[in-house]
Structure formats: structure tokens, C-alpha cells
């Protein structure tokens, strides 16, 4: 299977740490992620709000590029890119009217789309294609003593997904347990972090963030683990806003699953860009495993 990697726009800015840890982990595991040449913005929620068909067409271009470049699957670590690319793939495969429209739009820009490349999320590739048994053999440092709250958010499993459940997502759970952590089950694991609505309706979104953080704290979690750049940014960078709005004093690190996987594979926090987060995870990591 040839994986065409779609980094997504935030990989160059707010999620440089996700990007760095994704690349480092892929290298350590020997997974070949080749960047899709000339990929564009997936369309995401703000563009879907201007025109949903426009957003689907933007994603379709990425699928066309991946096919042209001989990839079997488009792989992304961003849940929002995954959602949009999957929506384009699904519309092309299952909605004849949209298929025709997308074929026309692609031919207008000199591209062709046949719907051959699948759309996959990195978490799915790591857990289901590569597999926990193979990873376990490469683990050099168990993360024993670390209590983690996996937080999945919306777009890995909803509205449609080829690997994750809409209501009870669990792909990270097994992986994190295998790495030696104690996995805590939050009722808020599939709730919404506010996504890009944080930019326009911030005061309303703080309530959503507060509820997720509070549950993680109630469970005694040392950190929250995510698989989406928006979930990370909102829960991490706006944690002080939540604290001032609600009179709380949350100080919960929000890390990417790739970062914990990387630590267990023997990579350093620096190699995994763990210093980029607003809430530092250093203290927690020092306590549990001297990382």
C-alpha cells in the first residue's frame, strides 16, 4: 500500500508539533509517508460554510492528485482533513449527482478523478495496518504510571468513518494501554471541542472545553491525548481562557498520540516537539518515567 501524505494547513502553523511527531514516529516504525505533491486546503468547515460543494471540490483535487501520483491511499493526521477528504470520496462514490459535478470541476482544472485512492487517518494506519503487536516489539520505554484520558472529538468517527465508532470511539485506547499507560474512560471523549467555531464564537465554546477538561480532572488524568490539531489547540491554548471564565485552575497537558507513541519508541520530547504546547507536560513526564 503506497501512502500519500496530506499534512494539512495547520501542520505549518498551529500543529507543527503534530507534524514533527508524526514524521518522527513514521520513521521509527518504518512507515513510508510520501507527501502528496502540491496538495491544497481540504475545504474544512469555514469553506463549507461559504459553500459546501466548493469545499468538497477542493478536497476532490487532493484525491485526484494522489491518484495521479500513484498512491493507494491519502493519509492525514488531521481529523478535519480526514472528514473533508472522506466526504469528497463518499460523495464521489455514492452520490451520482455530486460525482458528475466533481468530474466536471476536475476536468475544468485539467485533472481526472476516478475514486481509486482511499482516505485514511494516521491513527487507523498505525493501529490497524501496522498493528499493535509489531509496535510492541519496538517499544523500548513503557509509560508506566501515566494516567491518560483519550479524547477523540467528533470527526474521527462522525458523520461517517472507515475505522472509528461514532459514539464510542476507542482506537487510541488499546494503543495507549499497550504503551503502559493507565487509560481512563471519559464520557466526554467524543464530544466537541468547538472546532474552528472558537475563532468566531469563543465565549460559547469555552463551555465545551470546560466540560471536557473538568471530566479529565475528575477522573484523575495526568494528560489528555488527542488525534486532531483543532482538539489540541482548543484544549491547550484556550485553557487559560477557560480558567478565567470559570474560575478553575486546570493545568492539564494535551498531547498528541504520536508524541506518547514516540516517547515509548525511545524518541526524546525534543524530537517530538513536546515543548510547543502551552501547558507543559514536562512535570508529568518527569514524575512518571524520567523522560
Amino acid at each position: 500500500m503506497r501512502y500519500g501524505y496530506m499534512p494539512g494547513c495547520s501542520s505549518h502553523a498551529s500543529s507543527v508539533d503534530y507534524e514533527a511527531s508524526t514524521k518522527a514516529v513514521a520513521k521509527a516504525l518504518g512507515i513510508d509517508l510520501v507527501e502528496i505533491e502540491d496538495w491544497n486546503c481540504c475545504g474544512t468547515a469555514p469553506i463549507s460554510s461559504v459553500n459546501p460543494e466548493m469545499a468538497v471540490a477542493l478536497s476532490a483535487r487532493n484525491l485526484a492528485l494522489a491518484e495521479e501520483q500513484g498512491f493507494d491511499a491519502v493519509v492525514t493526521a488531521c481529523a478535519a482533513c480526514f472528514n473533508m477528504l472522506y466526504k469528497a470520496w463518499d460523495n464521489f462514490a455514492n452520490n451520482p449527482g455530486m460525482r458528475k459535478q466533481l468530474e466536471e470541476a476536475m476536468s475544468d482544472i485539467g485533472r481526472t478523478l476516478k475514486g481509486k485512492a482511499e482516505v485514511r487517518h494516521l491513527l487507523d494506519i498505525i493501529v490497524n495496518d501496522y498493528g499493535l503487536e509489531k509496535i510492541e516489539q519496538l517499544v523500548t520505554k513503557k509509560l508506566t504510571g501515566l494516567k491518560v484520558v483519550p479524547y477523540y472529538g467528533c470527526l474521527l468517527g462522525r458523520p461517517k468513518s472507515n475505522f472509528e465508532d461514532a459514539e464510542e470511539p476507542n482506537s487510541m485506547d488499546g494503543l495507549l494501554a499497550m504503551l503502559g499507560t493507565e487509560v481512563l474512560d471519559s464520557d466526554f471523549k467524543a464530544r466537541c471541542c468547538g472546532s474552528s467555531t472558537i475563532f468566531t464564537k469563543r465565549s460559547y465554546m469555552l463551555r465545551l472545553l470546560h466540560d471536557i477538561l473538568e471530566d479529565a480532572q475528575r477522573l484523575g488524568g495526568d494528560m489528555i491525548v488527542v488525534a486532531c490539531p483543532l482538539c489540541q489547540m482548543n484544549l491547550d491554548a484556550y485553557q487559560t481562557n477557560v480558567n478565567s471564565a470559570y474560575g478553575t485552575s486546570f493545568n492539564i497537558p494535551v498531547v498528541y498520540f504520536t508524541q506518547l507513541l514516540g516517547l515509548a519508541l525511545g524518541l526524546s520530547p525534543q524530537q517530538l516537539a513536546m515543548d510547543k504546547a502551552f501547558v507543559s507536560s514536562q512535570k508529568v513526564l518527569n514524575r512518571v518515567s524520567n523522560l
Binding site: P159, S195, K201, M205
Partner: peptide, 12 residues
């Protein structure tokens, strides 16, 4: 519509 975070709970 502007408060909708597109969480897709309603849809599923």
C-alpha cells in the same frame, strides 16, 4: 447555524 460546531451528533 453560526453556533453549530459541526459535531455531527445530530446527523448520526
Amino acid at each position: 447555524q453560526w453556533l453549530c460546531t459541526t459535531c455531527y451528533y445530530c446527523t448520526v
